Simulated scan of single mutants.
Amino acid sequence: MFKGGSLYLGTLLKIPVKVHWSFALLLFYVVYTGQQLGMSTFAIINFFYFTLLIFACVVLHEFGHALTARKYGIGTQDILITPIGGLARLDRLPENPWHEMIVAIAGPLVNIGIALLIGGYLYFSGTGFEVIGEESIVFEYFSNFPVLLLYLNVILVLFNLIPAFPMDGGRILRALISVFKGRKKGTQIASWIGRILAVGFLIFGLYENHLGLIFIGIFVYFAARAEYRTVAAEERYRHGKVSDVLNHNFMVFSKNDLMQDIFHQWEGSEENAILIADDENNIIGVIPEEDVFHAKEQGDVFTPVYRYMSNEFESVTMELPVRHLFYLFNNKSVQMLPVSRDGRILGVVRRQDLANFLTLRT
């Protein structure tokens, strides 16, 4: 039942629901807090069950996202419950900003619906909206459950509408900006707004000595940065071409050259991609970097370079989409891709070049 650090709870509406192992730490913290507040065993047990009730609302919130995304043809891998909330792991995000906005709004709308239902019950039943008792005895009374659940759903709505990733407010803000500026620019602006708010949470949390705000500030800051990096990589992946990844640092040797010829040029040179040509200057193979190191360690100075040559390569053009490089590297097991135009070698593309291209440093 445990897989990847998560416990499978079941499948609802064709969507698996899982709980991360760290959720148990939150439940232990609930019991610890109850003891620190001087609650009775009965109140602590109620506090425990009330926490599960809150997270049931969180799961419904995530189903709001997942089922709305399904209307746009987007599946959901699963819904994961963690100590800091839930996560509907969609197969992908909607590319249409209006669709993304609707998917993001759907979660808070679920909590608004829950709050309205509870509020209607409390109003028409005459129960009222007042919480009975102090902290240590508040969970002694079952009548407090609906009132507290109402307030906490309102808090969930307000918290999720904070315009910072990974909260829904950050995605709504990104979608609004994307309508006018495009997805990448929208993510960049929303990410920076999120980071500014995160720093504000952190400073205020340090000033008030509030551990929760400090944690939220740190979490939001890094989540906002990660979101921008992910979207920027997606944009590069979608629109990039080989010309954007081209590495001009390469050396060409004849198949009859000796390994010592490579060693002499290799030391202190940035041109570490080795291509092997025949007598007519056609590229017939490559020598991976690790093979050069191995040959040097073995002292194979007089060994012809073709002995270390690999013919697992494929020549590509400058206009080839970046996404096709993944297929070549992963499905054809190529080590290096010479880039040519009109029979002339312009450079190479290696796996590391592709990784560097998709990694945005901010």
Rank of each mutant, 00 (worst) to 15 (best):
L13F: 06
K14A: 07
H20D: 07
Y29N: 05
Y32V: 15
Q36H: 05
Q36A: 13
T41H: 02
A43H: 06
Y49H: 11
T51M: 12
T51G: 06
L52P: 04
L52D: 02
A56T: 15
C57N: 04
V58L: 13
V59W: 07
E62V: 01
H65C: 14
A66I: 03
T68V: 11
G75E: 03
T82N: 10
P83D: 09
P83Y: 01
L90P: 01
L93E: 12
P94K: 12
N96K: 05
N96V: 00
E100H: 06
I102A: 10
A104G: 05
A106E: 04
N111R: 03
I112W: 08
I112L: 11
G113K: 00
L116M: 09
I118K: 10
L122Y: 11
Y123S: 09
F124N: 11
S125N: 02
G126T: 06
T127V: 10
S136N: 07
I137Y: 04
F139H: 04
E140V: 14
F145E: 05
L149I: 04
Y151M: 09
L152W: 15
I155L: 09
L161K: 13
P163W: 05
A164D: 10
G169L: 10
R171A: 07
I172H: 08
L173S: 03
L176D: 13
K184I: 12
K184S: 12
I216M: 08
I216K: 04
I218V: 13
I218T: 14
A224V: 14
A226Y: 06
A226L: 11
A233K: 00
E235Q: 06
R238S: 13
K241E: 02
K241F: 00
K241G: 02
L246N: 00
M251H: 04
V252R: 05
D257H: 10
Q260K: 11
D261C: 05
I262A: 08
E267D: 15
S269N: 05
E271N: 15
A273P: 10
I274G: 03
I276P: 11
D278A: 03
N281C: 09
I283S: 02
F302E: 08
T303K: 03
F313L: 06
M318N: 04
M318C: 01
M318E: 02
L325R: 05
L325P: 00
Y327C: 01
Q335V: 15
M336F: 12
G343S: 11
Q352K: 10
D353G: 03
F357N: 14
R361Y: 12
